[in-house]
Design a protein around this nucleic acid. Structure first.
Length: 309
DNA sequence: CGAGTTTGACCAGCGC
DNA sequence: GCGCTGGTCAAACTCG
């Protein structure tokens, strides 16, 4: 991807909106201290306000333009990403020699998380015959980055699983573990977990079917699997049948700890560092399409209000 | 003692 | 039909 496609998204969000105004007031108060008898004429104050208004308008316009550019950039990137995904999935289908794995591709939802670099989805409708059951069952695939030293084939997703088999497959030296959902006796969901052949630190969990019960609450999970260090996960983010990019696994040293650490850092940081952190957070937020959309709405609303003045 | 895991045996689908 | 492979079963084993 060419670097020319990248746009500087670090918006000057006017983090301290009263900065200029304060400056003016400060100048004013300093002047007052020096010469308390001289009062700023009302007209002058009005002119200052108009000037401030114009400055804010110009800033809003600039932000709106940047948002538009950002939106276009985001769409371009998304399109490019989808193209890459399509190419990848085609390659996967053509190289796959597995009988049943082929049919998985018809309804597979591949969800990547932990480092979020493999999120994709694919569907290919003419590469193989489709047995009926393959269409009926929902198949999701998730990738979990784990500690390479951790040899366990455990993907903690909040559900209760019972292992019923393990097998070494031909195309992968690491064994594949077979799990059934044991939270509800009649739950048809099965899970296969195997380390990625390319990257042994990545666990590939394949879910088949849909849970016919509610996601176990954290307390239920704690009761059912006291030794399993499962933290609460939202239903939507863990249901294999409901693929989402917001899946978050509780990996040691994962996002949870990181966020905690960050909070700690924020608590401890002096004001200057906090300012830098705020600016970093603002930069991160501007990369979020939801945020940019909300910001655009807010700006347009604000502009309307300003124009009414 | 019960629940969960391990592991060898068995079964079924597919290619040759 | 035979062999290979993935998936499942179930007895044996482990652990709390």
């Amino acid at each position: 991807m060419g670097s020319s496609a990248w746009v500087d998204t670090t918006l000057d969000l006017n983090i301290n909106p009263f900065h200029h105004r304060n400056k003016a007031l400060r100048t004013k108060s300093e002047g007052e201290m020096a010469d308390s008898d001289v009062k700023l004429p009302f007209k002058q104050e009005n002119a200052d306000l108009v000037e401030e208004l114009n400055r804010i308008k110009a800033e809003n316009k600039k932000l709106t333009e940047m948002l538009t550019a950002l939106g276009h950039c985001y769409n371009d990137l998304q399109n490019k990403f989808m193209e890459l995904v399509t190419i990848n999935s085609e390659n996967e289908v053509s190289t796959s020699k597995k009988r049943k794995a082929e049919c998985e591709d018809y309804s597979t939802n591949m969800i990547g998380f932990s480092n979020g670099n493999k999120e994709t989805s694919c569907s290919d409708e003419d590469s193989c015959k489709v047995p009926r059951e393959c269409i009926k069952t929902t198949i999701s695939r998730i990738y979990v980055r784990t500690n390479p030293s951790d040899n366990s084939l455990i993907v903690r997703d909040g559900y209760q699983w019972r292992k019923y088999g393990q097998k070494v497959t031909k195309d992968n030296p690491s064994p594949r573990a077979y799990f059934k959902c044991s939270f509800a006796p009649s739950c048809p969901v099965k899970k296969k977990v195997q380390r990625s052949a390319e990257d042994p630190s990545v666990l590939v969990a394949t879910y088949e079917g849909e849970h016919n019960h509610a996601h176990p609450s954290p307390s239920e999970v704690a009761i059912l699997s006291p030794k399993c260090n499962v933290k609460p996960v939202s239903c939507a983010s863990t249901r294999p049948s409901a693929p989402t990019a917001t899946i978050e696994l509780m990996q040691p040293g994962g996002y949870g700890d990181g966020a905690k650490k960050k909070t700690q850092e924020v608590d401890d940081a002096p004001a200057a560092i906090q300012q830098v952190l705020v600016q970093h957070m603002a930069a991160s937020l501007t990369r979020n399409p939801n945020f940019t959309a909300a910001l655009a709405a807010a700006i347009s609303g604000r502009e309307n209000r300003i124009e009414k003045w």
